[in-house]
Design a protein around this nucleic acid. Structure first.
Length: 872
RNA sequence: GGAGGCAUGGCUCAGUUGGUUAGAGCACACGGUUCACAUCCGUGAGGUCACAGGUUCGAGUCCUGUUGCCUCCACCA
């Protein structure tokens, strides 16, 4: 047998991964005889490197994919990366700035060159990092949102939407990031609370000695005001409707309109209306046919309409305007006010609402079937509560602004004729205007990065080509992702899949939480509390990281990550390593490793526990309860297999009897093999490595069949007996500890047991595991002489002559304590059984259990009392 | 303003459709060079399951309310 190092060292991970690649283990093919299990990897952005959130997401997916593959599914996991239009462009611009360059200087082509270079570098690095995690995705299908296939899908989708009238271009109020210099969708705006003021000032009424006081958080937008609104039902204010007010600092006169948007009792009862810079005002402006006057430009500076404030920054202008209003005696008061300000989700800059010509997707017709699909359970969220979040968003959705004033992305396939104004939307390049024959130029803008992500479940399978893969693997089985991109991504994949494929993109959406630090804080660059998964892999190995991430997670819940946690996982991996090392080093050259046909008691016990574990873990994994599955495996492997079964097997292994040795080693190899298979989805590398040490040459564990529950190898009687044995051995250990018996000292036992044959059979175990010398079976305590310590466990009375070591007072106290405890049980059980309501209503089996429990406790009490008395 | 989540020993979490005296791991205390493992082994201490009611023979588990922490959505100037 191969040598195994004494301490687990994950250096073999790379070699194992190459072995899988060489054998094309990850590749999935259309196979009508098998049921597909398809997962699309949420493509990481190529902006940087993998973080702990990716590691979690990938681990969960790989556990499921490996599990399903072993269960006999044709498991396809498509990997890829996302071009992340705005995020990447921001990074590239940053990098260029360090070199003293701007986008304009390098030009569109030069910029694209740099971007593709960036993609090659960072995209490639991410792929290497994913491989380091050991994930089993089909690299032959690796996709990128801007590769040829995905780009074709984008073109196809855009044109089809357009032809259906679901994409339109128009002047609408949109979110504008002055820093990134692009429009943003509603989803890309994050709100944060900021401490600001509410400024009150007067708009003089034309022709009267009166003025309307308005309150605003944004005085600088007053230069774009085109009305003041009051509520027509407001008794105090409605009189102003139809009048005009003079807009201070300008020469304009604007109307007072009545609109219920203005809430009675809030502020002053009048609100200034700036259609160009506020979505609500924009809507109100449409209702009242108000002109739209933009006073803040796309650069965030005041523009031509701002008169003397032109060229000032928004905030500077605010200050100046307030000063000027004050000088005019129009400022009434300033109140501190906390409100939410929209910021760009990429750069954090305060976004401006402004009116701009952009492309939009009409959402209502698309949202409806997407809502219906979840209502009818064609797609289910796990946990279910996230469906509410989904519905809430879909039901209140507004049109999706998809054009971005960026360069890195899919360029919008719209072409304009400058001569006659004709526009053509086409998958192929339009050079000549079909109307006037003039030259056409393509739209300068690119699409929202999420437009291509939305097509991911089918663009990666060849769409718009109707490939065999698409027919076989779509719809996918489960989408695994964190809750923070339900809107950005999950929702959009839903309506896109329904629209273009005629079916939902996935049957289930498994939502997991985010990885937090040890104190429960979000990991972030600014806090500097992030833990780099690659550093963890270097130090502890990918298996330890994976197991650590899978432990203690539950669908939808956040998880905490700490160095202490990974250490405990590493220790578990080490434990598995050493248990395996023990088994393997005990395999003799000519040992027969076939599973014995007859099992001894210990075998039956471990087989029962193994089968229970198989059943539970399988159920857990099918329900996506990875945390529970991991916990059960940890417990079974460490506390049952290692602590008890291996220890017990040593009596046979070292008995000197070849037959006994062979029996023991064959059993150990069998159980270990099953354990390795069960653990493989969680820790693929070490299980493959260990498996290779004893499995038939060339056989890979990742392609092995998942263990199945075998009811013929479940032995409840032996299971109970061995639980009793464990109790006996623990009790003896406990007593030795309390009596300060030296660990090396062997003690002799006298045992009165209800099942003497069983005690006889397990005597070697008792001797080995409890440091026991002779075990003498007796029928009456009178046979015991001298000072003894005694205990009652699993129905047996055990007497331990300890000679001088017995401290009578201590012994008395110990037994008294046990008596008290037993009396507690008796009291409770008696009360329960005396309650007729209980005996009548509770299930018969439960009542019976209580009766047995009472009888056993009473028996034990009697024996204990006896012991106590005998000490005097 | 709306929606949701969490609350169990010092820390991280289990606790299946309500049913033994609520379990692990880490940390802690004590003892261990027994030939797989000190990244280990054995033993132990530590919890009125946030609070108050209710349903039930029986509640950590179900219902109502309260408090505390967290998240998402909305964004009325």
């Amino acid at each position: 047998m191969d040598n195994m190092e004494k301490t687990y060292d994950p250096q073999f991970e790379k070699r194992i991964y190459d072995l899988w690649l060489k054998n094309k283990c990850f590749e999935a093919h259309v196979d009508p005889d098998k049921e597909p299990f398809t997962v699309m990897m949420p493509p990481p952005n190529i902006t940087g490197q993998l973080h702990m959130g990716h590691a979690l997401d990938l681990t969960v997916q790989d556990v499921l994919v490996r599990f399903k593959r072993m269960c006999g599914y044709e498991a396809l996991w498509v990997p890829g990366t996302d071009h992340a239009s705005i995020a990447t462009e921001v990074k590239i611009v940053e990098k260029m700035r360090e070199e003293g360059l701007t986008k304009e200087q390098v030009g569109r082509d030069g910029f694209m060159q740099r971007a593709w270079q960036w993609k090659a570098e960072y995209g490639g690095r991410i792929v290497e990092q994913m491989k380091g995690l050991g994930i089993s995705c089909d690299w032959s299908r690796e996709a990128f949102t801007m590769d040829e296939n995905c780009s074709n899908a984008v073109l196809d989708a855009f044109v089809r939407y357009y032809k259906k009238g679901l994409i339109y271009r128009g002047d609408r109020i949109i979110n504008w990031c002055p820093h990134c210099h692009t429009a943003l969708s509603d989803a890309e705006v994050e709100y944060e609370e900021q401490q600001s003021n509410l400024w009150y000032y007067k708009y003089p009424v034309v022709g009267e000695d009166d003025a309307i006081v308005i309150a605003t958080t944004r005085p600088e937008t007053m230069l774009g005001d085109t009305a003041v609104a009051v509520n027509p039902k407001d008794a105090k204010m409605s009189k102003y409707i139809g009048k005009q007010v003079r807009l201070p600092l300008t020469d304009r006169v604007i109307p007072v309109v009545g609109d219920e948007y203005c809430e009675i009792g809030f502020g002053t009862g009048a609100v200034k209306i700036t259609p160009a810079h506020d979505p609500n005002d924009f809507e109100l402006g449409l209702r009242h046919n108000l002109p739209v006057i933009q006073c803040i430009g796309e650069d965030g500076l005041m523009n031509d309409n701002a008169g003397k404030y032109k060229g000032m920054d928004r905030l500077a202008a605010r200050k100046a305007i307030v000063e000027d209003l004050k000088a005019l005696g129009l400022l009434v008061k300033i109140e501190p006010y906390a409100h939410n300000v929209g910021t760009c989700y990429r750069c954090g800059e305060t976004v401006e609402a402004l009116v701009s010509k952009q492309w939009f997707v009409k959402m209502k017709p698309l949202a409806q079937p997407a809502i219906e699909a979840v209502r009818s359970k064609r797609t289910e969220f796990i946990p279910k509560r996230f469906e509410k979040v989904y519905f809430n968003w879909m039901e209140n959705i507004r049109d999706w602004c998809i054009s971005r004033q960026l360069w890195w992305g899919h360029r919008i396939p719209a072409y304009y004729c400058d001569k006659c104004g004709e526009m053509v939307v086409s998958k192929t390049k339009a050079d000549v205007c079909p109307k006037c024959g003039g030259a056409m130029r393509q739209d300068e803008d690119v699409l929202d990065t999420w437009f291509s992500s939305a097509l991911w479940p089918f663009s990666t399978l060849g769409y718009p080509k109707r490939t065999k893969s698409l027919a076989y693997f779509y719809p996918t089985s489960v989408l695994v992702t964190a809750y923070d991109i339900i809107f950005f991504w999950v929702a959009r994949m839903m309506f896109s899949g329904i629209e273009f494929m005629g079916d939902v993109p996935f049957s289930e959406v498994l939502i997991h939480g985010i990885v937090r630090d040890a104190q429960g804080r979000k990991m972030s660059k600014s806090l500097g509390n992030g833990i780099d998964p690659l550093a963890i892999i270097d130090k502890y190995g990918a298996d330890a990281l994976r197991f650590s991430l899978a432990s203690g997670i539950a669908p939808g819940s956040d998880t905490r990550f700490s160095e202490a946690k990974i250490e405990s996982s590493r220790n578990f991996v080490n434990k598995l390593w050493n248990a395996s090392r023990f088994v393997i080093m005990n395999i003799g050259k000519d040992d027969d490793l076939t599973l014995p046909t007859r099992f001894n008691g210990a075998d039956k016990w471990i087989l029962t526990r193994l089968n229970d574990t198989i059943r539970q873990v399988t159920v857990n994994l099918n329900k996506y309860e990875l945390g529970l599955a991991a916990a059960k495996l940890y417990d079974f492997v460490w506390s049952e297999f290692c602590d008890w079964y291996i220890e017990m097997s040593k009596t046979l292994l070292y008995s000197g009897d070849k037959k006994q040795h062979d029996h023991a080693i064959a059993m150990l190899v069998y159980v270990l093999g099953e354990i390795l298979k069960l653990l493989h989805p969680f820790m693929p590398f070490i299980t493959e490595e260990i498996y290779s040490k004893f499995a038939p040459k060339g056989q890979l564990i990742m392609l092995a069949a998942w263990p199945s529950y075998n009811k013929h190898r479940v032995y409840r009687k032996e299971e109970a007996q061995f639980e009793g044995l464990r109790e006996i051995i623990s009790s003896i250990r406990n007593l030795r500890n309390e009596m300060n018996v030296a660990p090396s000292k062997r003690v002799n036992l006298h045992v009165i047991a209800p099942d003497a044959r069983f005690i006889q059979a397990v005597t070697p175990y008792i001797q080995k595991l409890a440091g026991v010398g002779e075990v003498e079976l007796i029928s009456d305590k009178s046979e015991v002489q001298g000072r003894v310590s005694a205990l009652v466990a699993a129905g047996a009375e055990i007497f331990i002559p300890l000679g001088e070591l017995v401290d009578l007072d201590k012994e008395r106290e110990r037994i008294s304590q046990e008596i008290a405890q037993t009396q507690g049980v008796i009291a409770k059980t008696t009360a329960l059984l005396a309650n007729t309501a209980f005996t009548q209503k509770a299930p018969e089996k439960l009542v019976e259990n209580e009766r047995t429990k009472l009888a056993q406790a009473q028996d034990k009490l009697e024996k204990l009392k006896d012991k106590l008395a005998s000490l005097d």
